[in-house]
């Protein structure tokens, strides 16, 4: 495939993969925890970028798939002792299936109406899971420690979950790139720019959009499964936390909407910044205010995000910064 001969994607994958090895090389658990979260955010932001940045559909409540994947996989692991990677894949597939059926009606909505509907869907699932006793209702579900025995104890399980998250992040980034560079991706961008014109040009928007939504649901769902596997506890609140979705949107905007690197850069910058603000004693109280002011400045003055800005300023780098 010609797309994979691009130097750009290999550079990105090597950089991300290399960074992921650091905690293992330095044997630092706290660094590993930070990276685990960071990779998860990269996955969330990149997935949202596929439906939002490429296709123009602002999936505000995208976190719903993180929760759904997490819950499905957790249930399988807890009740049927399904191996965690298998459970995560089943969780991902399940969430994709749900996205497919939700997508058919909901993707007919445009603009603000779509954004609001995705919030409604997330809140509906959150309140449903709060009442759904099979999945533990409001208190959620937790593992007995014996679940981790199959993986050589909780410590080892954490390590395995980390490796899985690294692989998932690389696959997500790769997928995001392949989509962007494909005919499929070109169709999505045509829909983003002008849906009615795209139809006249021969694109069936409904089909493309539903497929995209289905794909973009998969990665957050698997990430959710890995996150809650390592966590050992899943509850409706953290599983369907709308705020986290919105933060992921912010990361996409920060890094650069519609680019492959944008969501990665955005996730890293946002998370580092937040980490810095929270740990600094004088700034920790004001961290929300500072983050808000920064976001506002970016939204108002650097509309294209960091990557978009660099691409505009340094055309020579365009080939390397998709």
């Amino acid at each position: 495939m010609k797309t994979l001969s691009s130097p750009f994607i290999w550079i990105i994958l090597v950089v991300v993969g290399g960074a992921s090895l650091l905690p293992i090389l330095t044997n630092s658990v706290s660094l590993r925890e930070d990276m685990f979260l960071m990779l998860m955010l990269v996955i969330l932001a990149s997935s949202i970028n596929i439906i939002m940045g490429y296709t123009g559909y602002v999936s505000f409540g995208h976190i719903v798939f993180f929760g759904l994947g997490g819950y499905l996989a957790f249930f399988l692991m807890k009740e049927f002792q399904v191996q965690f990677m298998l459970a995560a894949l089943v969780g991902g597939a399940g969430a994709s299936l749900i996205a497919f059926f939700i997508g058919i009606p909901v993707l007919r909505l445009r603009g603000a109406y779509f954004a609001l509907a995705t919030i409604g869907i997330n809140e509906a699932f959150r309140s449903f899971f709060t009442n759904f006793d099979l999945f533990g209702g409001a208190v959620g579900m937790f593992f007995n420690f014996s679940v981790y025995d199959a993986y050589g104890g909780a410590k080892n399980a954490g390590q395995l979950a980390y490796y899985a998250m690294v692989v998932l992040a690389l696959v997500t980034i790769g997928t995001s790139f392949v989509i962007k560079k494909s005919k499929f991706g070109l169709g999505l961008m045509a829909i983003r720019e002008d849906q009615d014109a795209s139809m006249v040009l021969g694109i069936d928007p409904a089909r493309l959009k539903v497929l995209t939504y289905t794909i973009s649901a998969f990665f957050p769902a698997v990430a959710g499964a890995l996150f809650f596997f390592k966590n050992g506890l899943i509850e409706p609140g953290p599983a369907f936390e709308l705020h986290r979705s919105i933060e992921a949107l912010v990361m996409v905007m920060l890094g650069g909407y519609g680019t492959v690197t944008g969501p990665i850069v955005g996730a890293v910058v946002y998370e580092r910044l937040r980490g810095f603000l929270i740990t600094d004693p004088t700034l920790s109280n004001a961290h929300l205010v500072i983050a808000g002011v920064l976001l506002l400045l970016i939204v108002l003055f650097v509309t294209a995000g960091v990557i978009g800005w660099v691409r505009q300023r340094v055309p020579a780098l365009r080939r390397y910064l998709e």
Binding site: L249, V250, M253, L288, V289, G292, V293, L295, L296
Partner: peptide, 10 residues
Amino acid sequence: LLATFSVNMI
């Protein structure tokens, strides 16, 4: 949406 969300954060 993001502009008003940043107002929210602030």
